[in-house]
């Protein structure tokens, strides 16, 4: 609220608090594209600062800023749809580069990232929003323009689809390794 009142330097604290979840949101949405995720996350903080007066303090700050992120993500997705499908698909199937020593976990995450690439933008987004601890399901519903129960159903169905794709990819990978 101090930011809204013009005390802009407080925005640094909000940035420090949300930068990881915001970057992670776009990183998952763009399938591990670090450069694009940085650009989109930067655009969110830029808009938040520019339109700080639109935050009325009636909901959580997390909800407000992820609403901005949602709109920026939708715009990005629309632009991506305009580029050739092969370019888009090759972009989607990039594998994440995790600095993680736990090989099994790294494989899980890499497979997860690939599986997410086969979901629709809406399914992918609702899954990513669902994992953000600062956001309640009722807030995700407001951000995406749904009811709370519709959001839960959407997440569950997206998880089901993700599970099918994930298991398929896991089996394919297992068979490839056996050959």
């Amino acid at each position: 609220m101090k930011v809204v009142d013009g005390d802009v330097d407080k925005f640094g604290i909000l940035y420090e608090r949300y930068k990881k979840s915001m970057f992670g949101y776009f990183f998952r949405l763009t399938h591990g594209d670090t450069a694009v995720s940085e650009d989109l996350a930067h655009a969110v903080f830029y808009k938040a600062l520019k339109y700080k007066h639109s935050y009325r303090g009636t909901g959580t700050f997390a909800k407000w800023i992820f609403h901005i992120a949602h709109n920026i993500g939708v715009d990005y997705y629309r632009k991506m749809k305009r580029i050739s499908s092969s370019e888009y698909l090759s972009h989607l199937h990039q594998e994440d580069k995790y600095e993680n020593n736990d090989i099994e976990r790294e494989e899980d995450l890499s497979l997860l990232s690939r599986a997410m690439g086969y979901l629709s933008h809406e399914d992918r987004e609702v899954l990513i929003l669902g994992k953000i601890k600062e956001l309640r399901y009722s807030e995700i519903a407001e951000i995406t323009g749904n009811t709370e129960s519709a959001v839960k159903t959407r997440i569950f169905r997206a998880l089901k689809r993700l599970k099918d794709i994930y298991l398929k990819l896991e089996t394919t990978q297992y068979e490839r390794e056996r050959l």
């Binding site: 640094g12 930068k19 970057f23 990183f27 940085e38 930067h42 995790y98 997860l112 994992k131």
Partner: peptide, 21 residues
């Protein structure tokens, strides 16, 4: 999905943000 903490943002994001601020 839930336990995937995701990567840390690159340092360049901090630089850009603080320049903008």
């Amino acid at each position: 999905v839930i336990n995937d903490a995701g990567p840390d943002p690159p340092e360049s994001m901090d630089t850009r943000f603080y320049e903008m601020l």
